[in-house]
Write a protein that binds this DNA or RNA. Sequence first.
DNA 1: GCTTAGAGTTCACTAGTTGGACATAGACGG
DNA 2: CCGTCTATGTCCAACTAGTGAACTCTAAGC
Lengths: 399, 399
Amino acid sequence: METPGSQSSLHRANLERVVRAVRLAGSLTQAEIARTTGLSAATVSNIVRELKDGGTVEVTPTSAGGRRARSVSLSGDAGIVIGVDFGHTHLRVAVGNLAHQVLAEESEPLDVDASSTQGFDRAEELVNRLIAATGVDRSKIAGVGLGVPGPIDVESGTLGSTAILPGWTGTKPAEELRGRLGVPVHVDNDANLGALGELVWGSGRGVRDLAYIKVASGVGAGLVISGKIYRGPGGTAGEIGHITLDESGPVCRCGNRGCLETFAAARYVLPLLQSSHGTDLTMEGVVRLARDGDPGCRRVIADVGRHIGSGVANLCNLLNPSRVVLGGDLAEAGELVLGPIRESVGRYAIPSAARQLSVLPGALGGRAEVLGALALALSEMGDSTLLDSTLHAATPAFT
Amino acid sequence: METPGSQSSLHRANLERVVRAVRLAGSLTQAEIARTTGLSAATVSNIVRELKDGGTVEVTPTSAGGRRARSVSLSGDAGIVIGVDFGHTHLRVAVGNLAHQVLAEESEPLDVDASSTQGFDRAEELVNRLIAATGVDRSKIAGVGLGVPGPIDVESGTLGSTAILPGWTGTKPAEELRGRLGVPVHVDNDANLGALGELVWGSGRGVRDLAYIKVASGVGAGLVISGKIYRGPGGTAGEIGHITLDESGPVCRCGNRGCLETFAAARYVLPLLQSSHGTDLTMEGVVRLARDGDPGCRRVIADVGRHIGSGVANLCNLLNPSRVVLGGDLAEAGELVLGPIRESVGRYAIPSAARQLSVLPGALGGRAEVLGALALALSEMGDSTLLDSTLHAATPAFT
DNA sequence: GCTTAGAGTTCACTAGTTGGACATAGACGG
DNA sequence: CCGTCTATGTCCAACTAGTGAACTCTAAGC
């Protein structure tokens, strides 16, 4: 941010412009870059040379049968980003590069009762393992995205009370991880990251406004508005789980009655099946049984869908997103749950808003959050971090 | 948008930067501009000269007792914007300048059964009258903001069906007015404009995210997110009136049951008082009686408040705005309605979101929409239109 | 084999910002 | 009442960075 308004800032902006164009297209020739960015060929020539010297970009002498086009693409190891996601039962880590490619991904079970220290030990270990496995240069790591399953104040980085990982309340996960890995860590809650993940790699590609509904032990939503995570001024936007559906409904853990969560979240829904299907049931199990035709499970899932649909209808009336993506275990139920959701939306949302809404299952399953963490790391640094390294590497070469 | 990335675009950006800084501060010396914008004093000197030659800015030789500071301020007649609002019973027009000052404002009753042609005749006439009254130069009009009381597709400019001004459906108000006045016209619905008005001049000053709830014959909300009107991909965001509060409630004109509107909008609420208070009651009348102590009216207003509060709680959970502003006639009831709203919000919203929410009455009353139309005209042209004229006027002077 | 056309580079030119030198004018102290 | 001080605004030379035009290069097409 040195001097806004100066020529150097313009140059920087043009660098970013080029990098973004290349990233979006995968690979471009210089002439194509000039056309898509609106810059002149001469400028592009200079910028590409600078980026190449900095190692950000790779120039393959000639690829396809053109005249003599050198295709420019992001060099795979120009920068590495890492996504870490603490889920309710699993810890997932993914390693990607600036070209939006996922190089490696792994998950391992995480003990719910683990202390935060244990959790971070495991995360650090897994990150190191993946870095070693992919053989990337540690110094190339540009940033880490971190997902936590609970309300987090993005400003201060403090984790609020989470019923899922008790004992983590009040910790500052980003600082903790930053201390261990020595690189910038950006944190957000899992619903927001799921939304970002589906937006970039999953069912939300091509859309700029999206709501990601995650149904697990609770119900949360991640909102993407104009391509950016919307957190709201207080950072608690997207609490769709605590919309009131029935003022005299069951008491919710939040203290109100008849929240959507009490009709849809695993903790409230599973008990319904205990007497008939035993106590060891998980949401995953219910979904499996429903797919196999079990009528009780089908009925329960349809009811959950109807209630989620009511919440989505409210969301739709208020925000009018063009796409709603359903994540979490429940998404595995496919049409068994999506049908009732769509039916409810059609019934309760105003027609003009409902008409252009598509409700889709998540395409990434449980991976949405890690990949979202990756996307967060990418978006948080913008292309600027990348360019910083470019500049540092490039300027000595010019003197 | 000529050539993005060129130096001229940088220059343009710096011009905008200076204009914005001056507008936000009212008046600044060149040194102050340099400090707030981060530009160098020399650059500011050039830019100020250019703006002065273009007539955008005025330089008063010296104002207060400094050393020799020339204070720079936007020249009042650098550009004029006009706001036009078609309300349910009134037509309002306001004239303002680029310094965000309102120069004149007038309203006149509008016959509900007026055809759109008649309406536009009246609007054109009133605009001309105000232009004459303020003595501004017609050629200085940079843009017009237009508010219409119904759903409008901002992309195509076509008005959807409106129960308030029947016979206007399918017209393109912006085109119509543009044809008559010969300047760019930007259109939006009244709830969005009310939100913008309160944001810029009213109860929303200093906030970037705001929801404006307008209760009249229907219930609508205007959402401002990060300082910009949020319309949603389909343009129908903010339909808080058709959130479902009670699945088995009264049938709403939208076809669903138990919409917020059926508990709060005038058309559904007034009949409740007909047997006791007669049939000529208006919402305004109910509010007046309630303020005078009429228990029936007080009860009705409190009930309306409670229901609105339920809707606001949902809104709050989903979007977590920092401020909710209540507009329309109902806002006149003050605490009689705000109290129950806050109570409902406290009851139904999750505590962390409700805690930082302030619910305020609109500060502008029925003027919110016209002023919002003014703000729309200002924001739609950005500072660019302003700068275009500057450039056109300034470049000949340099050759 | 010659022509052609698109790709990329080089170079002189130009737009525009900057730092520093300079003139100006009020405030302050004597 | 006068010199000094300090902050303001302007001017100028230097520098940065983008552009158009000319130029070179290569492969395709006839």
